[in-house]
Amino acid sequence: MTETPNPHIIDADTLTGEMRPIRRAVLALGSNLGDRLASIQGAVGAIADTPEVWVTGVSPVYETEPVDSPAGADTYLNAVLLIDTTLAANRLMDRALAVEDAFDRERSDVANAPRTLDVDLIVVGDRRSDDEHLRLPHPRAAQRAFVLKPWFDLEPDAVLPDQGPIADLLAQIGTDGLVLREDLALDVE
């Protein structure tokens, strides 16, 4: 991913004159509890309302089988957002967690437990991070068709840093278990 200029903003801190880079970021959204579409739509709206964040693309909605989830978990609705932002990656992560909390996300020790909302940072510009709070690029994105396919729909020539072109990654893992929900659509409010 490259640093992408955004024509909607002047990228300077008006108090200090300090320039902050504009980064393209990819966020993956998912929900398999409650009103799944309302939760994902609410996340789109909350992210779009975030200062220093500009939504530049919203993928189609896919219904997907749970991956590595407890037995009996319901299917997910998934989508991907492309944004431009001047927020630092850790501040964007904090915002993603706050949006999840606003939609009653319950955290548990059960891996991949069902959730009302999941907001994952997949990439933030060319930023790399491997700490407990933030891992970039997302460590499992290359194996997740529910991330790669919606992202591919928006940016077929995108590259997942350290992994390669998403088209190649998607060709390797396939799209079994993904169903395009043409009857559902997300709007930037």
Score class of each variant (00 low, 15 high):
3 E>S: 05
4 T>R: 00
4 T>S: 02
8 H>N: 04
9 I>W: 10
11 D>H: 12
12 A>S: 08
15 L>T: 11
17 G>Q: 06
18 E>R: 10
18 E>S: 10
20 R>L: 13
20 R>K: 13
22 I>N: 02
22 I>F: 02
23 R>L: 05
25 A>R: 04
26 V>R: 00
26 V>N: 00
27 L>K: 10
27 L>R: 10
27 L>D: 05
29 L>I: 06
31 S>I: 12
36 R>G: 10
36 R>I: 08
38 A>M: 09
38 A>Q: 15
39 S>H: 15
41 Q>C: 08
42 G>M: 01
43 A>Y: 03
44 V>W: 09
46 A>G: 08
48 A>M: 09
48 A>T: 10
49 D>I: 01
49 D>Q: 15
51 P>N: 15
51 P>H: 14
52 E>N: 15
52 E>T: 03
53 V>P: 10
55 V>R: 05
55 V>G: 08
56 T>C: 00
59 S>L: 02
59 S>T: 03
61 V>E: 10
63 E>A: 14
63 E>W: 06
65 E>S: 08
66 P>Q: 03
66 P>R: 01
68 D>S: 05
69 S>M: 05
70 P>V: 12
72 G>K: 11
72 G>C: 10
73 A>F: 02
74 D>E: 14
76 Y>W: 14
78 N>W: 12
80 V>E: 02
83 I>P: 05
85 T>L: 12
89 A>G: 12
89 A>I: 10
90 N>T: 15
90 N>G: 05
91 R>Q: 14
93 M>K: 15
96 A>F: 07
97 L>C: 06
99 V>L: 04
99 V>P: 03
102 A>T: 04
102 A>K: 04
103 F>C: 05
104 D>V: 05
105 R>I: 06
106 E>W: 04
106 E>L: 12
110 V>C: 02
111 A>C: 00
112 N>G: 07
112 N>I: 05
113 A>M: 04
114 P>F: 08
114 P>E: 13
118 D>I: 01
119 V>A: 11
120 D>H: 08
120 D>I: 07
123 V>E: 09
124 V>P: 06
124 V>Q: 09
125 G>F: 08
127 R>H: 14
127 R>V: 14
130 D>G: 14
131 D>C: 12
135 R>Y: 00
137 P>Q: 13
142 A>L: 03
142 A>W: 08
143 Q>F: 10
146 F>H: 10
146 F>E: 12
147 V>H: 04
150 P>Q: 09
151 W>M: 00
151 W>R: 01
151 W>N: 01
152 F>R: 03
153 D>Y: 04
153 D>G: 02
153 D>I: 03
155 E>C: 04
155 E>I: 00
155 E>H: 01
157 D>A: 12
158 A>F: 00
159 V>K: 02
160 L>A: 03
161 P>E: 05
161 P>V: 07
161 P>H: 06
162 D>Q: 12
162 D>T: 14
164 G>H: 07
164 G>C: 09
167 A>D: 04
170 L>Y: 03
170 L>Q: 03
174 G>L: 03
174 G>Q: 03
175 T>R: 06
175 T>F: 03
179 V>P: 00
179 V>W: 04
181 R>M: 13
185 A>N: 08
186 L>M: 09
189 E>Q: 13
189 E>F: 13
189 E>A: 13
